[in-house]
Design a protein around this nucleic acid. Structure first.
Lengths: 292, 292
DNA sequence: CGATTCAACAAGCTGAGCTTATAGTCATGC
DNA sequence: GCATGACTATAAGCTCAGCTTGTTGAATCG
């Protein structure tokens, strides 16, 4: 338990600088009497005199003990001021925000969010973590993007429905929707069976459709590249695609019946106060996906 | 003017460590209610929530703002503790003491004083300043030894009467006192005409005695060496001598009439609180000279 | 020797901050 | 599903730290 009082130290400093109790009182907005009592209280708490009072119209002078207390006290005051400063900077958006993400978000949503966040808060320290996992957790993260709802003590918003489309070489299918059954025993390129891909393949199975998956890669562009190369076709969420409509080789089709879209959530720990940065990042993310 | 309160920061720390307001209260010797109110006051002063209270029997958790305040607050508390520590050490005799001295004191009195002071206060930082000057000043010094009283705003005690004796080669004078008139036109070695030497030579002049000063040196041992070498005789204060009674070459005599002894004072700035070190040094100096 | 310029002190008042007591909230266990 | 236990918040009351005003006392200076 500290026995010192920051205001006493501030008063000590003011008196040391000004030379008299009265001028220090003016500077601090107190009366002379208050300063006298404060210095008295400080002297009681340190157990010794900190100023010699010569009496009459002469300024007071620090005792050796006073020098010791003042020298250290200024350090204390500086740290206290630094604390208040840090609080202000924190409220102005300085600080760290850790965001968990995955490929589609990294490529489509986050660049805009990060850019706007840095525009607003140049001192922001944004860290991104991209882990492909089936066991998503907000532990150690301020925000987490994930393709599916999370369980546990999290708050989350669905920010996007990401519909699946068939990607194939031009001519492979006629224009218009591709029937799901057309995938049966078709050569396919696909992501690894994690995240929403698990659900997709379960839908295939329940429909009695058994594609031949000839290649799996976690790299979404790799999937498209291999479709382009003719390894097979793919069923991918729109967001993962980087296929222009006038692509020479590839085209996209709807699937019939359509798969339930992949749901993309933004989650954070429930009932926890968020930093200004995290709060703003959520808003920016919602705003960004609304423009897709 | 600081808006933070050290006790609030200490409470913040205790709650962060203990996890609940109640346990923090136990540790700090408060009631749970007091801790609740203190954290409330802290939150008001920083303008934001520092703990998330999940409600029920679950521990509270720091918010991002709380982390900022705690991290900085611990620095503040550490400095405050360092201040209190420094005060204790100061009272235990740690610190600096600057002592002005001159040859006789440096050789005869100070070694004992310094030794005892360091024995009592191993952390003492003793600095000695030996300036031969006619304008002694306690400015910048805690204590000053000087051969004569000081003027100005000083407190001083006469610690020693240092009688003058004639130093000459054996056989130069018969045993017993040497008459002052014997110095008339005698070859003499002497210190420079500063400090008490001025008074001595004024006494010579008033008595109509005009010695021939063949060599002056500020080095007291140099004076004696030259007397030993036969350059002349000398009149020196006892304390400056390092002549054993059974010296082969030299012997000492009283002067008749005797010169008023050189007065050695210990002075410090008047009406100023002294450090424990300086206070003790004065006591030790008085004690030491009493044993000469 | 009075005017001036200081700090200390007495007295009175207000509010910060403590305690006690109680209410509200949430998980857990039978 | 309800009682229990482990939490925090809050109301009420009280005390004292600490402020102001007004005055005293000390020391310098013209």
């Amino acid at each position: 338990m500290p026995v010192l009082d920051l205001r006493h130290l501030a008063t000590l400093d003011a008196v040391a600088v000004e030379g008299t109790f009265g001028r220090a009182a003016d500077r601090l907005g107190y009366t002379q009497s208050a300063v006298s009592q404060q210095i008295g209280a400080l002297e009681k708490s340190v157990g010794g005199v900190v100023f010699d009072r010569p009496g009459g119209p002469r300024p007071v002078r620090l005792t050796p003990l006073g020098e010791v207390v003042l020298a250290h006290g200024r350090e204390v005051l500086a740290r206290a001021a630094a604390t208040e400063d840090a609080v202000e900077r924190f409220k102005a958006g300085e600080g760290r925000v850790d965001i968990g993400t995955f490929q589609s978000i990294t490529n489509v949503v986050l660049p805009t969010v990060v850019r706007r966040l840095l525009d607003e808060f140049p001192a922001a320290d944004i860290r991104l973590f991209e882990e492909e996992t089936d066991r998503p957790s907000t532990d150690g993260l301020d925000l987490l993007f994930f393709d599916g709802p999370l369980t546990g003590e999290v708050e989350q918003v669905k920010i996007l429905d990401d519909p699946y489309v068939v990607v194939a070489r031009r001519g492979r299918f006629a224009d218009g929707p591709v029937p799901l059954t057309a995938l049966h025993e078709a050569a396919m390129v696909a992501p690894p069976p994690i995240c929403d891909q698990v659900r997709v393949e379960r839908v295939y199975a329940e429909a009695g459709v058994a594609p031949l998956i000839v290649f799996r890669t976690a790299d979404n562009r790799g999937v498209i590249s291999m479709v382009r190369a003719g390894m097979g076709l793919a069923v991918m969420p729109m967001l993962t695609l980087d296929v222009p409509p006038d692509d020479d080789v590839l085209c996209t089709h709807e699937l019939a019946p359509a798969l339930t879209p992949r749901e993309i959530y933004l989650a954070w720990q429930a009932n926890r106060t968020l930093s200004p940065l995290a709060t703003r990042a959520i808003e920016l993310a919602l705003h960004t996906v609304r423009q897709l």
